[in-house]
Simulated scan of single mutants.
Amino acid sequence: MPKIDLESVGMRLTAVRTASGLTSGQFANTVSIDPSSYSKIELGKKPLNVDMGFRVSERWGVSMDFLYRGRLNEVPESIIRTLRAIENEDR
Protein backbone atom coordinates (compact mmCIF):
# COMPACT_ATOMS: atom_id res chain seq x y z
CA MET A 1 0.00 0.00 0.00
CA PRO A 2 1.43 3.42 -0.94
CA LYS A 3 2.23 5.81 1.86
CA ILE A 4 1.10 9.42 2.00
CA ASP A 5 4.01 11.77 1.36
CA LEU A 6 3.74 14.11 4.35
CA GLU A 7 6.10 16.70 2.88
CA SER A 8 4.04 16.91 -0.32
CA VAL A 9 0.82 17.27 1.70
CA GLY A 10 2.51 20.07 3.64
CA MET A 11 3.61 21.77 0.42
CA ARG A 12 0.07 21.66 -0.96
CA LEU A 13 -1.29 23.09 2.30
CA THR A 14 1.31 25.84 2.10
CA ALA A 15 0.11 26.63 -1.43
CA VAL A 16 -3.52 26.87 -0.29
CA ARG A 17 -2.54 29.05 2.66
CA THR A 18 -0.21 31.30 0.66
CA ALA A 19 -2.81 31.78 -2.08
CA SER A 20 -5.26 32.82 0.64
CA GLY A 21 -2.84 35.47 1.91
CA LEU A 22 -2.96 34.23 5.49
CA THR A 23 -0.28 33.46 8.03
CA SER A 24 0.06 29.90 9.25
CA GLY A 25 -1.77 30.69 12.48
CA GLN A 26 -4.58 32.55 10.75
CA PHE A 27 -5.07 29.72 8.26
CA ALA A 28 -5.11 27.11 11.04
CA ASN A 29 -7.80 29.07 12.84
CA THR A 30 -10.03 29.15 9.72
CA VAL A 31 -10.23 25.36 9.84
CA SER A 32 -10.13 24.86 13.63
CA ILE A 33 -6.68 23.29 13.74
CA ASP A 34 -4.30 24.07 16.58
CA PRO A 35 -1.69 26.46 15.09
CA SER A 36 1.30 24.54 16.49
CA SER A 37 -0.06 21.26 15.09
CA TYR A 38 -0.77 22.94 11.77
CA SER A 39 2.82 24.20 11.53
CA LYS A 40 4.09 20.62 11.99
CA ILE A 41 1.68 19.37 9.32
CA GLU A 42 2.81 22.05 6.88
CA LEU A 43 6.45 21.08 7.52
CA GLY A 44 5.66 17.41 6.86
CA LYS A 45 6.45 16.42 10.45
CA LYS A 46 2.90 15.37 11.33
CA PRO A 47 0.14 13.78 9.22
CA LEU A 48 -2.96 15.71 8.19
CA ASN A 49 -5.76 13.60 9.62
CA VAL A 50 -8.87 13.07 7.53
CA ASP A 51 -11.08 15.31 9.66
CA MET A 52 -8.63 18.19 9.30
CA GLY A 53 -8.24 17.50 5.58
CA PHE A 54 -12.00 17.58 5.15
CA ARG A 55 -12.24 20.96 6.91
CA VAL A 56 -9.53 22.41 4.66
CA SER A 57 -11.24 20.92 1.61
CA GLU A 58 -14.64 22.37 2.49
CA ARG A 59 -13.40 25.80 3.59
CA TRP A 60 -10.89 26.44 0.81
CA GLY A 61 -12.48 24.67 -2.17
CA VAL A 62 -9.83 22.06 -2.82
CA SER A 63 -10.41 18.33 -3.06
CA MET A 64 -9.16 15.69 -0.70
CA ASP A 65 -7.45 14.16 -3.77
CA PHE A 66 -5.50 17.40 -4.15
CA LEU A 67 -4.45 17.52 -0.51
CA TYR A 68 -3.41 13.89 -0.18
CA ARG A 69 -2.51 12.86 -3.74
CA GLY A 70 -1.69 16.09 -5.54
CA ARG A 71 -4.38 15.71 -8.19
CA LEU A 72 -5.11 19.10 -9.71
CA ASN A 73 -8.69 18.48 -10.87
CA GLU A 74 -10.98 21.37 -9.93
CA VAL A 75 -8.29 23.23 -7.96
CA PRO A 76 -8.41 27.04 -8.26
CA GLU A 77 -5.76 28.36 -10.65
CA SER A 78 -4.32 30.69 -7.99
CA ILE A 79 -3.50 27.69 -5.81
CA ILE A 80 -1.93 25.80 -8.73
CA ARG A 81 0.28 28.82 -9.56
CA THR A 82 1.31 29.15 -5.92
CA LEU A 83 2.10 25.42 -5.68
CA ARG A 84 4.29 25.62 -8.79
CA ALA A 85 6.19 28.58 -7.32
CA ILE A 86 6.77 26.70 -4.06
CA GLU A 87 7.93 23.59 -5.93
CA ASN A 88 10.40 25.70 -7.94
CA GLU A 89 11.79 27.25 -4.74
CA ASP A 90 12.58 23.76 -3.39
CA ARG A 91 14.73 22.86 -6.40
Rank of each mutant, 00 (worst) to 15 (best):
M1R: 11
P2G: 15
P2Q: 15
P2C: 13
P2E: 15
P2L: 13
I4T: 14
D5T: 03
D5P: 03
L6E: 00
E7Y: 09
E7D: 07
E7W: 05
S8P: 12
S8T: 06
S8I: 00
V9R: 04
V9M: 12
V9A: 03
M11G: 12
L13Y: 05
T14G: 11
R17E: 05
T18A: 12
A19K: 06
A19R: 03
S20E: 11
G21T: 04
G21K: 05
G21F: 01
L22A: 05
L22P: 02
T23G: 06
T23L: 02
T23Y: 06
T23K: 10
S24R: 13
G25F: 07
Q26V: 00
Q26M: 02
F27A: 01
N29T: 10
T30P: 12
T30K: 10
T30A: 13
V31A: 10
V31W: 11
V31T: 10
V31G: 05
S32T: 08
I33W: 04
I33L: 00
I33V: 05
D34M: 03
D34L: 04
P35V: 08
P35Q: 05
S37M: 09
Y38C: 00
Y38D: 02
Y38H: 02
S39D: 02
K40V: 00
K40A: 02
E42L: 04
E42Y: 00
L43W: 09
L43D: 08
G44W: 08
K45Y: 09
K46T: 05
P47L: 11
P47Q: 14
L48G: 00
L48M: 03
L48Y: 07
L48F: 05
N49L: 15
V50C: 01
V50F: 10
V50E: 07
M52F: 06
M52Y: 14
F54N: 08
F54G: 06
R55H: 04
R55K: 15
R55S: 12
V56R: 00
V56N: 01
V56D: 04
E58V: 13
E58S: 11
E58K: 13
E58D: 13
R59N: 12
R59E: 08
R59H: 06
R59G: 07
W60Q: 05
W60K: 05
G61I: 06
V62G: 10
S63A: 13
M64K: 08
D65G: 01
F66H: 08
F66V: 06
F66Y: 14
F66S: 09
L67C: 01
L67M: 03
L67F: 06
Y68L: 06
R69Y: 14
G70S: 09
G70M: 03
L72D: 02
L72E: 11
N73P: 03
E74I: 04
V75Q: 07
E77A: 14
E77W: 12
E77C: 10
E77K: 12
S78F: 04
S78Q: 11
I80W: 03
I80M: 07
I80P: 00
I80E: 03
I80D: 00
R81E: 14
R81H: 14
R81S: 14
R81V: 11
R81D: 15
A85R: 14
I86C: 08
I86K: 02
E87D: 10
E87S: 09
E87T: 11
N88W: 07
N88P: 01
E89M: 15
D90A: 15
